[in-house]
Design a protein around this nucleic acid. Structure first.
Lengths: 188, 188
DNA sequence: AGGTTCATGTAACCCGTTACATGATTTC
DNA sequence: GAAATCATGTAACGGGTTACATGAACCT
């Protein structure tokens, strides 16, 4: 498996910067204030990540000087950055995406309306539903075969994982309903 | 925040080795076959981690030679290793544990019956329920305040996080019921 | 004048990832 | 005897964590 040329934190920053140009300090505040998708708000993570993105030509920082304002570098996406973000958003959902934590998928989805449009978001949820519905039976089978001779807490922990995916599946279905309602509203 | 002296992968291995002594290769197979709590099955992760644990005096490997058997190093916990594992299992649940993904909590819980006994596991679920019930309102409030001016996909993504925690809360309650039933059965 | 917030960075460390390497043992 | 599996490692790299550092602007 090849290494991604951009880390998840990098994509998170690309997604946010696409919606509005911001400084590193602004990003820190956002990450510090957002309870879900816990990224680090430490400067040791953010500034080097910004530097990497800039060196890769994905973002461009310009110094903003207002009168009596501390020197800030405000970053905005370049065309290459938009392309990189779009390619990431467009990637098909793989089994591996689901097994290795759904967090990255949710992050992608959160930027999808702005990046690719609602119709694509709705299709993403369809694909997620399909993939989850195909994965869950194999998970349940594993659970059934593994739980013999396992202590209660071990069995319960596995069940928690299954139920987490079931909850995600329900969410994906509800989300599709939301988009159907919304897109119908748009058409009127 | 101080750095843990043992990584999550290290604790996972301690927990497994406590239940039965195994070789690095066995651990790799376990990690490769277990779909939940995706740890890497790569030798580049496991063997260095085992080395760290052994240098720290937490595990002890002895070479097992059966006739016509490839040389295997089978690791078992030392007293220090058991202590380290127990301290980890006994740690109170912090808000931070919940915010930064529940995976580590679930891993701890899965070893708890074997490491501390069922009564402790049941209490752990109580504490988890309490903490989740306290956290969810603040999460919901954040969601409500943040979703204005947010695209649909962003709002849905946040809701998915909330629903994940709600699902975990329900799981914690069901789990307590399981233990109540089980402990009553033991008493008979 | 002194403390807080704004704002950006740097350096050491840890550890997981990827990829490569080696040899023994079993299986066909 | 060739291929697959068993079994253990190692080296380079990436990138997040922790902690430290620096200075400007603002408030009191």
């Amino acid at each position: 498996m090849k290494r991604e040329e951009t880390s998840l934190l990098g994509y998170a920053m690309l997604g946010i910067l696409q919606q509005q140009p911001l400084s590193g300090y602004d990003l820190r505040k956002i990450f510090a204030a957002t309870p879900l998708m816990a990224f680090s708000d430490s400067p040791g993570a953010i500034y080097p990540a910004l530097e990497r993105l800039e060196h890769g030509g994905l973002i461009l920082g310009r110094i903003q000087k207002g009168p009596g304002l501390r020197q800030r570098r405000v970053f905005r996406l370049t065309a290459a950055g938009s392309g990189q973000l779009r390619r990431w958003l467009e990637k098909p959902i793989s089994r591996d995406d689901i097994v290795r934590g759904a967090d990255a998928l949710l992050l992608r989805f959160s930027f999808m309306d702005a990046g690719l449009g609602r119709a694509h978001s709705a299709r993403f949820l369809e694909a997620l539903e399909t993939e989850l519905a195909a994965y869950l039976p194999t998970l349940r089978e594993f659970l059934k075969s593994a739980q013999e001779g396992m202590p209660i807490s071990g069995r319960l922990a596995l069940e928690s994982g299954v139920q987490g995916y079931e909850s995600l599946l329900r969410w994906a279905r509800r989300g599709q309903a939301v988009y159907r309602r919304e897109l119908r509203g748009d058409a009127l």
